[in-house]
Amino acid sequence: MMATTHALAGLALAALVAPVAPEHAPTIAAAGLAGGVFPDLDLYAGHRRTLHFPVYYGVAAALAAALAVVSPSALTVGAAVFLAAAALHAAGDALGGGLELEPWRATSERAVYSHFHGRWIRPRRLVRYDGAPEDVAVAAVLGVPAALALGPPTHRVVAAALAVSAGYAAVRKYLPTVATRLVAVVPEGVRRRVPDRFSNAGEQV
């Protein structure tokens, strides 16, 4: 799924938690957005493995939530929401497509790596690929109610995320061609640092 979809999933989670601690609502919303995006910071360094922990994030989120109940503060509640949103992201990737550059071809059986199990979890492809029409729909279904629940401060954030989602979806299937052409003309030293999937469209990673 798109990073924007994951971000809005984190915001939807925040919308569920905010009524429990309304005094920390801004922190909760920011933590949900940040946690939803955080795992994808590994995009160019072991994507869906380096910062994706479908089991461990959940365990950490449960411990952080327990601490937030015992000692509620902006820090403890925010940490719990951040970790829960990151867990939701990592688990959600298993519902999407694989890691190949052209995931609509369904050639990869790697969705997200589980460090706990020591293996890759296979893609379920309920959302066929990042940027698919259903991906945009999921982003809207998550984002719009969250914005309505959290109020005006989040309206522009959600509107911007949905605009980016729609734009990305419109060009998604052209991006592998653009990426492989760009990689072909960059210096060799740079090319060696580019993940294989960007120079081998359609190849399983």
Rank of each mutant, 00 (worst) to 15 (best):
D40W: 05
S108G: 03
G131C: 09
A74I: 00
R156H: 13
E102F: 02
V70A: 15
H115L: 00
A161W: 09
A146Y: 12
E109C: 09
G46H: 06
V141T: 13
I28P: 02
A86R: 11
A80Q: 03
W104H: 14
G97D: 10
G58V: 01
A65P: 02
Y57T: 07
Y56D: 07
G36V: 01
G143M: 04
H115D: 02
A62N: 01
G151R: 10
W120Y: 11
R49V: 03
F116I: 00
A147V: 10
A74F: 00
D130L: 12
T27D: 06
A85C: 07
L63Y: 04
S73Y: 05
A140K: 05
L101E: 12
A146S: 08
V164I: 15
P103Q: 07
R122Q: 07
H155Q: 08
V55T: 14
A139V: 11
I28K: 03
L99I: 01
Y44F: 15
A66P: 07
T107Q: 11
P145W: 04
L63Q: 03
R105P: 04
D135T: 04
S108P: 04
V158G: 04
L101H: 08
R128N: 15
F38K: 02
H115E: 00
R156P: 03
L148A: 14
H89G: 03
T27V: 15
V157P: 12
P145C: 06
I121W: 13
A132R: 05
G118D: 06
T50P: 00
A29N: 07
S73N: 05
S114K: 06
G151V: 08
G35Y: 14
L162H: 14
L150A: 13
P103S: 14
L75G: 09
L101N: 11
P133H: 09
P54G: 01
D135Q: 00
A137K: 15
G96P: 01
G58C: 05
T107P: 00
V59R: 04
L162M: 10
V141Q: 12
A61V: 03
E102R: 15
A45C: 15
L101A: 13
G97N: 12
D40S: 05
D135E: 01
D135G: 00
A45M: 13
L150Y: 13
W104Q: 14
L126C: 02
V158D: 05
P72W: 07
E109I: 01
L67Y: 06
T107H: 13
P103L: 10
P145Q: 04
F116N: 11
L142F: 11
H115I: 02
F82P: 14
A31F: 10
A68F: 01
